[in-house]
C-alpha cells in the first residue's frame, strides 16, 4: 500500500472531523442540513476509497447508499419539514459557541491520545482511521448535548453514525455490519422523521424540546 493511498484515506477522514466542527457552530437549520449533506458526501468518498484500497466491492454499495440516503434523501426531507414547520430561522444553542468549540477540540485531542496509544499493534491506516472516527463520534455526541432543537439533535445523531461507518469501513474485512448499520441509520432517520417530528408538531406547533421539558413527570 503506497503513500498516496494512505494520504487520500487520511484526507477524507480528516475532512470528516473538520466538517463535524463546522456542524458544531451552525446556527441556522438550513445551513446545518447543507453541511450535514456535505459530511455524508465526504463519507461516501471515503468509503468508496476504502472499497478501492481494500479491494472490497461490497463497500461500494455502502458508499452508494450513503450518497443516496444520507447526502440527498434525508437532507431534502428534513429541508421540507423545516420549511413546513416554519422553524428555518431558529437554532438556539444551549451552551455558547466558544466553550462548545473548545470542548470539541479537547474531545478530538482525547480521542487521538487514547486511540493512537492503545492501537499500537494495528496497521497505521486502520488505527488513524479509528482515531478520526472516534473524534467524529464524540463531536456528534457533543452536538446532541448542546442543541435543544429536535432537528439538530437528529443531525447530531446522524453525524455520530457517520463516525461509526468510518470506523467500520476502516476495519479491514469487517463482515455484515457495514450494510446492516447503514440500513439501521435509515430506519432511525425514518422513525425520527415520521413519528417524532410529526407528533411533536401535532401537539405543540414547535419542534423545540425545551417546550417538552416543561412536561416532566415529577413536577406533578
Amino acid at each position: 500500500m503506497g503513500g498516496l493511498y494512505f494520504d487520500i484515506a487520511h484526507l477524507f477522514a480528516g475532512g470528516l472531523v473538520l466538517i463535524s466542527f463546522i456542524l458544531l457552530y451552525q446556527d441556522r437549520l438550513y445551513a446545518l442540513l447543507n453541511v450535514f449533506a456535505l459530511q455524508a458526501f465526504v463519507l461516501a468518498l471515503s468509503v468508496a476509497w476504502q472499497a478501492y484500497v481494500q479491494d472490497a466491492p461490497h463497500l461500494y454499495i455502502t458508499a452508494g447508499i450513503t450518497i443516496a440516503f444520507k447526502a440527498v434523501a434525508i437532507p431534502v426531507a428534513l429541508h421540507r419539514m423545516v420549511a413546513r414547520l416554519g422553524v428555518h430561522r431558529e437554532v438556539e444553542t444551549v451552551v455558547r459557541l466558544v466553550p462548545t468549540m473548545l470542548a470539541g477540540i479537547a474531545l478530538v485531542a482525547l480521542s487521538m491520545v487514547v486511540m493512537l496509544r492503545v492501537t499500537g499493534g494495528a496497521d497505521p491506516l486502520a488505527r488513524e482511521d479509528l482515531a478520526f472516527a472516534l473524534s467524529v463520534v464524540l463531536l456528534g455526541l457533543l452536538m446532541m448535548v448542546t442543541r435543544s432543537n429536535a432537528v439538530s439533535q437528529v443531525v447530531g445523531f446522524m453525524s455520530l453514525e457517520n463516525g461509526l461507518i468510518l470506523a467500520a469501513t476502516g476495519a479491514k474485512g469487517m463482515p455484515l455490519v457495514v450494510e446492516i448499520s447503514v440500513a439501521f441509520s435509515i430506519l432511525i432517520a425514518l422513525i425520527v422523521i415520521g413519528i417524532f417530528l410529526f407528533r411533536i408538531r401535532e401537539r405543540f406547533d414547535s419542534v423545540d424540546l425545551q417546550v417538552l421539558d416543561d412536561y416532566r413527570g415529577e413536577a406533578r
Binding site: A133, A150, L160, L164, A168, R216
Partner: peptide, 29 residues
C-alpha cells in the same frame, strides 16, 4: 402521544441510540 409520553420516548430514543452507538464502536474495536 401525550406530551409526557413523547418526551419520555424522545429521551429514551436519544439516550438509547447513544448507548447503542457506543456499543457498536466497542464491537468494531
Amino acid at each position: 402521544r401525550t406530551p409526557a409520553a413523547l418526551e419520555a420516548a424522545w429521551k429514551y430514543f436519544i439516550l438509547g441510540s447513544v448507548g447503542i452507538a457506543l456499543a457498536l464502536f466497542g464491537t468494531i474495536l
